[in-house]
């Protein structure tokens, strides 16, 4: 893609960057064995993202910016939870990232900070896309982005609907895809694929088995 310069050594495994420690670790750490095929790294092989923008954000946010990394030519900023919205706002106001593409979350139930919250922003002027990522614990209420981008309204509602992450200050935080009185948050990893809100199904659809 036009805005992405693939690092020349993306084929080989780049050296572990310091921010790797903050990355989710897969359940089984790679066991050092004399097996001939080299195992892929158990953590994302992201490398340091060096650019003017990353330096500017670092200067502005100091240690609230945990890492600026790039993987497969795609750049992302790892920030502390309280800095996520300010960073998105900074990118919009100072760096022309005026289009909030998406907000989503990833559930890592074994981690203390259970959820990754991901903001994808794009700049029409620079033709560049950046992800802003933060890790939050279950029950933490991240601030809403609706004050920065209007489109965050429905996107945050969907994250709330699917993960149960409540956004503080959201003007209209209701479920959006599921019925309002549905119990449970389906995209959490501890929600099995066949699970339904049986009571809701019985009461509203009249299906006795609940399935």
């Amino acid at each position: 893609m036009a805005d992405e310069q693939r690092p020349p050594d993306s084929e080989s495994q780049p050296p572990k960057a310091p921010e790797d420690t903050a990355k989710p670790v897969s359940p089984k750490p790679a066991v050092p064995k004399a097996a001939p095929p080299p195992k892929p790294p158990a953590i994302m092989a992201a490398v340091l993202w060096e650019s003017e923008l990353a330096r500017d954000v670092k200067e502005q946010f100091g240690d609230r910016l945990l890492a600026a990394s790039t993987y497969l030519g795609q750049n992302f900023l790892l920030v502390k939870p309280e800095a996520a919205v300010p960073v998105v706002e900074y990118l919009k106001v100072e760096a022309d990232f005026d289009y909030l593409v998406d907000i989503t979350a990833v559930d890592w139930p074994k981690r203390a900070e259970r959820f990754d919250l991901v903001y994808i922003v794009y700049s029409f002027a620079r033709n560049e896309r950046v992800r802003v990522k933060t890790s939050i614990a279950d029950g933490f209420r991240p601030a809403t982005t609706t004050g920065v981008h209007l489109t965050a309204n429905w996107l945050e509602r969907e994250v709330f609907d699917m993960f149960g992450i409540e956004f503080a200050g959201h003007p209209d935080l209701r479920r959006i895809l599921l019925p309002e009185d549905w119990q449970g948050y389906p995209l959490r990893k501890d929600y099995p694929i066949l699970q339904q809100d049986q009571r809701w199904v019985q009461e509203n659809l009249g299906i006795e088995s609940g399935q």
Partner: peptide, 20 residues
Amino acid sequence: PPVGEAYVSIEAPKGELGYY
């Protein structure tokens, strides 16, 4: 695929269709 993540989007007839 190796551990990691990617966001790729295309111009669908309706607008930007992205997969993260």
